[in-house]
Simulated scan of single mutants.
Amino acid sequence: MMAQGRDKRIDYIEFNVSDIARMRAFYGDAFGWSFKDYGPDYCEFSDGNLTGGFAAGGEVKAGGPLIILFADDLVDTQKRIETAGGKIVNPIFDFPGGRRFHFTDPDGYELAVWSDK
């Protein structure tokens, strides 16, 4: 049986971060995300499909679930990430169904970007 609406779908992702302004700049520049502040210690982000938050004050830990973003143009996206201050930790590689690469953001979270092209 298929899930209906938001049931059983990823709905929100939260990052503990050391500097909300730096993370806003990184994800805004690299991916064009929008933001809404909820005081000095919390900022919600939206990529146009999924929302999440940046929380200040908690322990920043690299790792956790691997969040995978989609991009029509991997090369352009990789350049944008590097320009915004991210580090490519696994260059573009092929896998069944497409290509992807992994990067870390300024606080060390590892994410991936994939494309079916």
Rank of each mutant, 00 (worst) to 15 (best):
M2V: 14
A3E: 14
R6Y: 13
D7V: 11
K8Q: 12
R9N: 07
I13T: 11
I13Y: 05
E14R: 07
F15Q: 04
V17Q: 06
V17Y: 05
V17G: 03
V17T: 14
V17I: 09
D19F: 07
R22K: 15
R24P: 01
A25F: 06
F26T: 03
D29E: 14
G32K: 12
G32R: 13
G32H: 10
K36Y: 07
G39N: 09
Y42M: 05
F45R: 05
S46V: 06
D47I: 02
G48K: 00
N49I: 09
N49L: 10
T51R: 09
G57C: 09
G64K: 04
G64W: 00
I68P: 00
L69F: 15
V75T: 15
E82I: 08
T83A: 15
K87Q: 14
V89D: 00
P91G: 07
P91R: 14
F93Q: 13
F93T: 14
F95W: 06
P96V: 05
G98A: 06
R99Q: 13
R100I: 00
R100D: 10
H102E: 13
H102G: 02
P106W: 14
D107R: 13
G108L: 02
E110D: 07
E110H: 02
E110K: 04
L111E: 11
V113K: 03
W114T: 12
